[in-house]
């Protein structure tokens, strides 16, 4: 017997639905209207519906595709690196953390800092005249590379992102790894399976859902990167570090091209929705299997 009648359930859901409609549904609707309108800051309250011209403008804009490419590469590289390093740390540090769980707190510290602050911090850390890294490189090697030059900026930005967010992947993997019953590993050991076979055939398969979820979360987060990139290099020399979020921000505020910016944001929304749907489908397939 159900705890609540359908009418009661609907009643309890009403405030949440109302909240979502007001704070997510309304802006989304306005976004959709603006994306097919000719609109400026002067005509925010009176947009003229003009069709899909803004979408055509965005899709024909080389800078849009360049920013999509930057965001895609950035998301892929950082998500992969964070997951691989996080997995290694989770497996390698598991015995130590089981014995001294207090060590978990310092490992999580980077997650506590706002991405914009991380960007500002590294701007200082990598500065030739104020930062410790170039200082010691000059002292020991007599030279220091240009960390934020066009050639090195992508690597520097990716490393900064990876340093901040690897603990997130590590936390998820460590919890998943800890959740595997030791009996299974003991049974495998009794059968004479070496450690790498245990890892390949027991640990990783059992951790697969967490691995997939962590990768997708980090991919989405990397794809919409804004704060630390903006603080470190802005959009980069010649626009070389323009992520999709920076592209939208610049189109909206700097160029006043509201329709174009909103159309790009709708495309970003659709791409995110596609990724989330993919995750959902994968999860559904696994459940059915």
């Amino acid at each position: 017997m159900a705890l609540l009648k359908p009418a009661q359930s609907r009643l309890f859901l009403t405030p949440l639905t109302g909240f979502l409609m007001l704070f997510l549904g309304f802006p989304a609707l306005v976004n959709l209207v603006y994306s097919v309108s000719s609109v400026s800051f002067e005509t925010l309250r009176n947009p003229q519906i003009t069709g899909f011209g803004n979408y055509a403008l965005v899709l024909a804009d080389g800078e849009f595709w360049r920013s999509v490419s930057f965001s895609g590469r950035f998301a892929l590289v950082t998500a992969l690196a964070e997951c691989l390093i996080g997995l290694f740390l989770a497996l390698f540090l598991a015995p130590l953390l089981r014995a001294h769980s207090v060590l978990m707190a310092p490992l999580m510290l980077p997650l506590m800092v706002a991405p914009a602050m991380i960007g500002l911090m590294y701007r200082l850390v990598l500065h030739e005249f104020a930062g410790p890294v170039p200082y010691y490189l000059f002292l020991w090697l007599g030279d220091s590379p240009a960390f934020l030059s066009v050639e090195n900026a992508f690597t520097a930005l990716a490393v900064v992102e990876i340093l901040q967010w690897t603990p997130f992947a590590f936390l998820l993997f460590y919890m998943a790894y800890s959740g595997i019953s030791p009996d299974i590993r003991e049974a495998a050991a009794l059968d004479g399976a070496p450690w790498y076979r245990v890892l390949l055939w027991i640990d990783l398969p059992l951790m697969r859902p967490t691995l997939a979820i962590a990768f997708f979360i980090r991919f989405i987060d990397g794809f919409r990167v804004f704060d630390n990139v903006y603080a470190l290099t802005g959009s980069g020399a010649g626009g070389s570090t323009t992520s999709l979020s920076i592209y939208i921000y610049q189109a909206f505020f700097k160029q006043g091209a509201i329709g174009k910016a909103v159309a790009a944001s709708v495309l970003l929304f659709l791409a995110s929705l596609a990724v989330l749907t993919l995750i959902n489908l994968m999860a559904g397939t696994r459940r059915r299997a």
């Binding site: 990598l126 500065h127 030739e128 240009a146 030059s149 290099t233």
Partner: peptide, 11 residues
């Protein structure tokens, strides 16, 4: 400086 392409007022 080599990093001048990321320099502004503060740098």
């Amino acid at each position: 400086p080599k990093d001048s392409l990321s320099y502004e007022y503060a740098e």
